[in-house]
Design a protein around this nucleic acid. Structure first.
Lengths: 222, 222
DNA sequence: AAATAAATTTAGACAAATCTAAAAAATAAT
DNA sequence: ATTATTTTTTAGATTTGTCTAAATTTATTT
């Protein structure tokens, strides 16, 4: 209950959560890069968060979240994604404009606010980029989606999420008529530049996409 | 343009705005009481805000907002009241629960957010307590309402705002069937305890209210 | 008008979060 | 297995906003 963290602490917790691969460990430099800060600052904060039992940390050995820490992280991710959903669905924000605003909104402390917002939005399970939104208990849909790059030829699939939130990506997707939910299949793969040809459902002409685009586009085979 | 204030600075600016009677001056102790802090802290912040040209301040002489400062204050008040409106109208918060949450939300910096929220809410001109909401240019409806205590007998009037946001007041108003917009007139005034008898439109039985209640209830004669 | 009281400001300290530069530990290379 | 390199931690300083205690200024009494 006493999960009372400062904005800075919350940002560290969230960053560790995002960097943490299952089983593995996060390092000081990784975290410093993620948070655009210096390694020395990270060390200071790690000591504080260890004391607060948010993460397991042995000097020089790396660190990862405790159960408590993971719970806190899921709370912050929940807030972030619900606010993003609100901004896009209710306030007509563009896809690429929401991240920074949600970055501020996620630190508003009222639990009642976020639960009522959840209800107001009708309990959405995915944010505008296709990332799952943790529910009130921290549970979220497991994503078994794969990079479009790894989708076998001629396998029908649906676009489920995008791992980049730039306006440049949004532009490109609009131009190519691709959005979350689009049904498609890979018709050809070109070895020379690893580009891919797609057929998108309900769209006549085949679409060609680059390796870079295929890497950030995630799909769920049907 | 560079109106870039910290949360603490914004709280000072807002507090001075609320304490500042037209023409008059605000004192260090008043502000310390309002912000639940110490006079020494206030003095420190005043020097900083004077440098930022937010307020006029001469040591020992009191202070008030500059045009720049008033503009900043109106921006914060706008955010606070729009968020309160959102919480009550869209998220079904109770009247008495919104202040603290809005106190946090008002510091979110995105101007685009607040203008889009304003549009989403359909440009409301009064918050749930009847206080006017500044528009995008800082303009707001002038309230020529008076305390119910000063309303002459037998003058039809409409409840326009309440100067107290406690749940105790909300309780009492519910019980007496009074809300913002209620039409009423004073039928009798009792000298002994300065209590007042009211007739509320569409409600058969007359209602008796105490001096304390009459003082926080504001009405607009029709 | 001097003395007392009240309000305000200054001086010095502290906690949070950050930084730079130097020291220590772990890893990689010869 | 030493040496060199990279990574991480420590030490000490800085900024923001706060505090207490002491000094100063203004206001109030007598």
């Amino acid at each position: 209950m006493g999960s009372n963290f400062s904005v800075a602490e919350e940002n560290y917790i969230k960053a560790v959560y995002h960097l943490q691969k299952p089983g593995a460990i996060v390092t000081t430099n990784e975290l410093a890069a993620e948070l655009q800060t210096k390694a020395a600052s990270v060390t200071d904060m790690l000591k504080k968060l260890k004391q607060k039992k948010v993460l397991n940390y042995e000097p020089y050995r790396g660190f990862n979240l405790t159960t408590e820490g993971r719970k806190a992280a899921l709370g912050i991710v929940r807030k972030h994604r619900l606010w993003e959903y609100f901004l896009v669905e209710k306030l007509q924000f563009g896809w690429d404009e929401v991240h920074e605003v949600a970055e501020e909104l996620e630190h508003i402390t009222s639990k009642k606010l976020i639960d009522k917002l959840d209800a107001f939005l009708d309990f959405p399970r995915f944010d505008p980029h296709g990332d799952p939104i943790p529910d009130v208990n921290g549970k979220m849909q497991v994503q078994h989606d794969i990079s479009l790059n790894d989708l076998p030829v001629n396998t029908p699939a649906e676009v489920s999420s995008v791992k980049d939130q730039s306006s440049e990506l949004l532009d490109l997707l609009k131009h190519k008529n691709i959005s979350i939910g689009s049904r498609l299949q890979v018709t050809r793969k070109f070895g020379f530049d690893q580009s891919i040809e797609l057929r998108i459902k309900d769209i006549a002409a085949p679409v060609n996409i680059s390796l870079q685009l295929a890497q950030v586009l995630y799909v769920k085979p049907l």
